[in-house]
Amino acid sequence: MRRLLLSVHDVGPRFEPEIDLLLDRLSAHVELHAMAMLVVPDHWGLHPLVAGSRFASRLRSWTESGVSMFVHGWFHQDRAVHTHAMTRLKARHMTAGEGEFLGLDSATAMRRMTEGRDLIEQITGRPVAGFVAPAWLYGAPAIEALGACGFALAEDHLKVWHPPSRRVLARGPVITWASRSPMRIASSLMAAQLLLSLSRYAPVARVAVHPGDAHVPALLASIDQVLRRLGRTHRPVRYGDLLAD
């Protein structure tokens, strides 16, 4: 049977209520042990993940329930000055100032990756599953740092891969939604319908939800529809299962 990967992005104390709402919704379609969480160590430098805190305890509990934990940047905020025209275009139009790893040099990228991994592993007591850059945006130095850090898994908008070898494990666009404005909500709803039609025939389908989705009924309804229909053709699995192929 085809496989389904489901991830919850931007996990951290900043969005704890939204994460709870999303988990309640998602659990009707996918069991907790088959989900992935993308954890932000210090969202925008204002909401640090602190070892020993109540949220850290919840993170450990989710891990013990089988959730796959990914490092999801450090700040989830783009603080780089972009000099290349294409990079500036991506930073401006593909995310709301959150493409943290798009303009970082290799040393800075590696430091944030390893510090994020160390923190999350200290809290959960288990190895992280991999690394995913905020907004799925990577500069070339960040790609190099990924391989050097030895993360087993990474993904962008179009694929999942094994960074040390650069081997692609799954191809195809991720189905996700945007909640920042009415126009983005409408366009993401249309995109979800189109991608659902394509993903029904893909060996691996990916679905990603964000905290902002929890406050938009139309997005929640679309998420339900996508997971319900993919559930007929795809079996929910863990990201790590791709490594067994």
Score class of each variant (00 low, 15 high):
Ser165Leu: 03
Val226Lys: 00
Glu144Ala: 02
Ala202Pro: 13
Ser165Lys: 03
Glu31Gln: 13
Ser106Gly: 13
Leu22Trp: 06
Val216Ser: 12
Ala145Lys: 01
Leu153His: 10
Gln193Gly: 15
Leu219Lys: 05
Ala96Leu: 08
Ser27Val: 10
Gly73Glu: 06
His93Thr: 15
Thr233Lys: 00
Leu195Trp: 11
Gln225His: 14
Ala208His: 03
Phe55Ala: 03
Gly130Pro: 11
Cys149Asn: 03
Pro48Ala: 07
Val209Ile: 03
Trp161Phe: 13
Ala191Val: 12
Gly12Trp: 09
Arg200Asp: 13
Met190Tyr: 14
Ser197Arg: 14
Val174Cys: 06
Arg235Pro: 09
Gly172Lys: 02
Ser27Glu: 10
Val168Thr: 10
Arg92Ala: 04
Leu242Phe: 01
Ala205Gly: 09
Val40Met: 06
Leu189Ser: 15
Phe151Val: 06
Arg180Gln: 15
His47Thr: 12
Pro141His: 03
Met86Leu: 02
Val81Leu: 04
Ala218Lys: 08
Val8Phe: 00
Arg180Asn: 15
Val8Glu: 09
Asp78Met: 01
Phe131Glu: 11
Asp213Glu: 12
Gly147Pro: 09
Ile143Trp: 01
Gly45Thr: 12
Leu23Cys: 02
Ala34Met: 01
Ala56Asp: 11
Leu102Cys: 05
Tyr201Gln: 10
Thr114Phe: 07
His93Arg: 05
His84Cys: 10
Val226Pro: 09
Arg14Thr: 11
Ala145Arg: 00
Ala96His: 10
Thr233Arg: 02
Thr83Gly: 10
Gly103Val: 03
Leu4Lys: 01
Ser106Tyr: 10
Glu98Ile: 03
Leu59Asp: 13
His234Met: 04
Phe151Gln: 10
Leu32Arg: 10
Leu242Tyr: 09
Asp241Trp: 00
Ala202Thr: 12
Pro127Gln: 07
Ala34Lys: 01
Arg180Met: 10
His84Phe: 06
His33Asp: 15
Ala170Val: 04
Ala85Met: 04
Arg206Lys: 01
Ala96Lys: 03
Ser57Glu: 15
Gly116Tyr: 00
Ala170Cys: 06
His157Gly: 06
Leu242Gln: 07
Arg60Lys: 07
His157Glu: 13
Leu158Ala: 13
Ser65Val: 05
Ala205Cys: 10
Ala205Thr: 09
Pro217Gln: 04
Glu155Ala: 01
Pro127Ser: 07
Glu144Pro: 08
Val8Cys: 03
Trp177Gly: 14
Val67Lys: 01
Arg60Met: 08
Ile19Asp: 12
Leu243Cys: 02
Ala51Tyr: 11
Ala142Gly: 09
Arg60Val: 07
Arg2Met: 06
Ala91Asp: 00
Thr95Phe: 00
Arg3Phe: 03
Asp78Arg: 06
Thr63Met: 04
Asp42His: 14
Met110Ile: 06
Leu89Val: 05
Gly97Lys: 03
Met94Lys: 10
Pro164Thr: 05
Leu21Ser: 14
Trp161His: 12
Ala192His: 07
His47Ser: 13
Ser27Ala: 08
Arg54Lys: 08
Ala129Val: 09
Ala154Pro: 12
Glu144His: 11
Ile175Leu: 02
Ser68Met: 10
Ser68Glu: 15
Arg60Cys: 06
Ser187Val: 02
Ser181Gln: 12
Glu16Asp: 14
Pro211Arg: 02
Val67Thr: 08
Phe151Leu: 07
Thr83Ile: 05
Asp10Gln: 07
